[in-house]
Simulated scan of single mutants.
Amino acid sequence: MNVRAIVKKTLEPLGVPVVFSTYGGEEDTYIRFFFYNQNTALSAEDDEMITGHYVHIDIFTKSPKEYARLEIEVPKLLKTAGFYRRNQYDDYEEETEIYHKVLRFFYAQNKEEE
């Protein structure tokens, strides 16, 4: 399974839209993700054995309650699926009054799993 599908499937139980790259829906709460780096994590005999995927995840919401829930649940679900947290930070977009959580994770995928 490709990593884009793994991220989407992992976060779908949260009950909010989970989209790759851009969101065009009407919901005030949604999760967007994209990959900011994908490269060889392990090679043997000039063949890529494991690919490293660095994924950037944004949580957007106008609800402080949803923000608190999602900032706990997103990392928990991703960790269970084999992702490793790299960093995260909080942001608040005053113009749109949207809470924004940025999370970055790493996922190592064996080429045989693709």
Rank of each mutant, 00 (worst) to 15 (best):
M1Q: 04
N2P: 09
N2D: 08
R4E: 12
R4T: 10
R4Q: 13
K8G: 09
K8C: 04
K8I: 05
K9L: 11
L11T: 05
E12R: 10
E12Q: 09
E12A: 15
L14N: 00
L14M: 02
G15N: 13
G15F: 12
G15Q: 12
V18K: 11
V19C: 15
F20K: 07
T22D: 04
G25T: 04
G25E: 10
E27S: 04
D28H: 05
T29I: 07
Y30T: 02
Y30E: 04
R32P: 04
R32G: 09
R32L: 15
F33S: 03
F35V: 01
Y36G: 05
Y36L: 03
Y36R: 08
N37F: 09
N37G: 01
Q38D: 02
T40K: 10
T40M: 12
A41W: 08
L42R: 14
L42I: 01
L42E: 01
S43G: 11
S43P: 01
S43M: 15
S43H: 07
S43W: 05
A44F: 13
E45Y: 06
E45S: 14
D46E: 13
E48M: 08
M49F: 04
M49D: 07
I50V: 15
T51S: 14
T51I: 10
H53W: 13
H53I: 00
H53A: 03
Y54M: 11
Y54G: 08
Y54I: 05
V55L: 01
V55C: 06
V55A: 00
V55F: 01
H56T: 07
H56S: 14
I57S: 03
D58N: 13
D58T: 04
F60Y: 15
F60N: 06
T61R: 05
K62V: 02
S63Q: 02
S63V: 01
S63F: 02
P64L: 08
P64F: 06
K65N: 09
E66R: 04
E66G: 02
Y67R: 10
Y67I: 05
A68M: 13
R69Q: 10
R69G: 03
R69H: 06
L70I: 08
L70M: 10
E71K: 15
E73H: 09
E73T: 06
V74E: 00
V74Q: 04
P75I: 11
K76H: 08
K76G: 01
L77Y: 08
L77A: 12
L77G: 00
L77W: 06
K79R: 09
T80A: 15
G82K: 11
G82C: 10
G82V: 07
F83W: 07
F83T: 11
Y84H: 09
R85G: 07
N87S: 10
N87K: 13
Y89R: 15
D90F: 10
D91G: 02
E93L: 15
E94Y: 07
E95K: 11
T96D: 14
T96K: 10
T96E: 15
T96Q: 14
I98S: 04
Y99R: 14
H100V: 05
H100I: 05
H100K: 10
H100W: 11
H100M: 06
L103C: 07
R104D: 15
F105W: 06
F105R: 07
F106L: 14
F106K: 03
F106T: 14
F106H: 14
Y107L: 12
A108E: 10
A108P: 02
Q109V: 12
N110W: 11
K111P: 00
E113P: 00
E113M: 10
E113V: 07
E113G: 03
E114K: 08
E114Q: 15
